[in-house]
Design a protein around this nucleic acid. Structure first.
Lengths: 322, 322
DNA sequence: TAAAATCATTGAAACGTTTCCAAGGAATTG
DNA sequence: CAATTCCTTGGAAACGTTTCAATGATTTTA
């Protein structure tokens, strides 16, 4: 494998000149450029990126740390993040934490050692506490503190829209259904928006939540139906949860949307395999992904960001369940 | 950031000794080990993985090159691949090619420059041609040649099982539906298995295919229904295609499975959002993923693999469409 | 007890870049 | 034409690690 030295020798110039040609810095004569390029072609030389990273003490690698790439929401997010990173000349390293805090910490240590340029995280830990370096971080949907910029959808507004849609559909008693995993999550704002809007319209409403760690499908819905079986409108804080609700409701003989209107959050359905088509609050996944990357790169460049949280508007997407 | 030299100085030993302690090589006295470990702790030293990669001229990074992580089949695959890689002490770099040959080549060049340890590819190019180094490669579902080991499900047997299930369900005229993208793909064996088994049972059958590059939903199905509208059993070579068929069939007033039995291939449905539940040939995704990683690591270690293609058995999974 | 073998250790060299400094030559200025 | 500035260049140093040859200390063998 030829090195920059071989190129320099063949071209009859110094290594510095070769380096300057490769990285097209100023102040190289056209003749030198030609000589170097010829030599590069002749030797089939390709720059050793690892050596470059080493010398520069930084790599063009960004890590994406999330619970599971298998989840359709995250895989869509990852798709756009990778695309944007590639456009900007960066590479993506994928880390599945399984949502386990210990594995998150383990990965953060590893990323430290590997001197990644930045991290985009969808995590359960307050990673601000756990990262012992100055690696720039963007957090999606979780707001930990000032050091870690947060990108999220406008959860509060999303909650309000959901409530409004249910009201519009004639719902008498609306229920918020949530699996809530942690305090830092921006997701709780969906509830707040829902509640505020329900109050505004003066309709009856309830909220029913469970902690993600101790969550059991059957128990959760059993309790819900026992307490609030008469709810005729449901706002589930994720599409998956909405789908689970629909399944359980059907088992109990309820018809969707005739008996109960259901609205979800996320908008993850993207092919003909998904039915019924959920009415949902669509997260602007592509926008969130691209913005996360752009903000992260600005941080990597050393810029100060003007905001601590970036909220991107959401839209209601009509489906068959309302 | 402390380096190995700082550790050596503080511990009062040479850098070589520190290196041997870190990589727990033989020939170090317990006292030295203790001194070094104390110094490491005191300085909060973490080894610089980038420098190590540079020196060793290889990294513990494996690239996964696939069309789109957004696709549920690939995202499930990626999940298990990452998990297995992590278990083995490797990291995963994710590359979405969009299925575009030029982008595949572009990524392969990049991976070359970055000296990844190996590549797992789900590609449209014959990457054997395009990779100009000795980076070990595993290819999933495509068989290019001897240099690139192929891991796949037993497509031929899967095709046979599909045909058998349709026969068993009383189908009179069975149709194979396929979007076929390239010659190298192992996927065509699904057709072969289907045809052979249909012949064996002596039922009427047809095959209807289109090239993936010029594929148009509406045209494809329009033509199919025109030619073979009387088929009462469908084997679609992917679940997505099966779902598309079902949609189009319903638009034409056909009832599934009463009028037409449908069987897919992949088994990508994993949550309550998917309906109807497809009867399908389930690919052993987890097994394929883990085996791909294990084989790749063996190649990285310099081992010769005994086979050129590894086929993993598939199973029929019952659903609502047969 | 002397010679040989083993073990533990050190520190320099090397990996392939980028960057910086010194320096030569060309162009510009007064 | 001398002095100054500018442009281009070459080559050494540095990044942090692993490894290897050399060395000294200890143990084993004859």
């Amino acid at each position: 494998m030829p090195s920059i030295k071989d190129v320099a020798n063949l071209a009859g110039v110094g290594v510095g000149t070769v380096s300057r040609v490769i990285n097209n810095h100023a102040n190289v004569t056209p003749e030198s450029i030609k000589k170097v390029n010829d030599a590069i072609k002749q030797l089939n030389y390709i720059p050793n990126e690892v050596a470059r990273n080493f010398k520069m003490q930084k790599s063009k690698m960004v890590a994406l740390l999330l619970p599971s790439i298998w989840h359709p929401f995250f895989s869509e997010m990852a798709y756009y993040i990778e695309d944007q990173l590639d456009q900007e000349g960066y590479k993506l390293m994928l880390c599945n934490s399984g949502g386990r805090p210990d594995k998150e910490v383990y990965y953060l240590d590893m990323l430290n050692q590997n001197k990644v340029a930045g991290i985009i995280g969808i995590t359960y830990n307050d990673i601000e506490e756990n990262v012992n370096t100055d690696i720039p971080i963007i957090s999606i949907d979780r707001h930990f503190g000032s050091k870690i910029t947060c990108v999220t959808s406008d959860n509060y507004e999303g909650g309000r829209i959901a409530a409004r849609q249910l009201v519009k559909a004639g719902v008498k008693k609306a229920a918020y259904l949530g699996i809530t995993s942690l305090a830092y999550s921006e997701v709780i704002l969906r509830k707040k928006g829902f509640v505020d809007e329900a109050k505004l319209h003066g309709i009856e409403y309830v909220t029913f939540e469970e902690n993600g760690d101790v969550y059991d499908d059957d128990v959760f819905f059993e309790q819900f139906f026992q307490k609030h079986g008469n709810a005729d409108g449901i706002f589930a804080n994720t599409d998956i949860l909405a789908a689970e609700y629909i399944k359980k409701a059907k088992e109990r003989g309820l018809k969707i949307p005739e008996d109960v209107k259901v609205i979800g959050y996320d908008g993850i359905q993207n092919n003909d395999l998904f039915h019924p088509i959920l009415s949902t609050i669509r997260q602007p996944v592509e926008e969130m992904a691209r913005m996360s990357v752009k903000l992260l790169l600005r941080k990597i460049e050393g810029e100060e960001l003007e905001q601590e949280i970036y909220r991107i508007p959401v839209k209601y997407r009509d489906g068959e369940t309302i």
